[in-house]
Amino acid sequence: MEDGAGVSRARNLDRTVHAVLTVGLALSTALMATGLLLDWWRGREIPHYVLPLSEALARTLAGRASGFFSLGLLVLLATPVLRVAASVVAFLIERDWRYALVTLAVLGVMITSVLLGRG
């Protein structure tokens, strides 16, 4: 691998990672902050438990604070998973099979954890 190509590849990967982290964080923060505002306006309904994704989505669409909290937390947790998934795609596009495999292994462990949590 030539030096110039290596540096520009690393930069592309950094940019992808940066974009995923920034969007995920912004969305998650916005959801949780909206939840707090809704809660203050419309009575205190923050429960002491979190909701599964489908229920969180339904309540968010219904404009309920509890939905915004859970969805915000889920987006926060999904951000690193998406970051790794984006890296897999970035390495595949670059035809860097070795690192595509490395990141795929990491993604596999994360998905295993999601499945074990449900079961």
Partner: peptide, 11 residues
């Protein structure tokens, strides 16, 4: 990435 792996279990 590490923390998210166990956080989904706690969630």
């Amino acid at each position: 990435v590490t923390a998210a792996t166990s956080a989904v279990l706690y969630y």
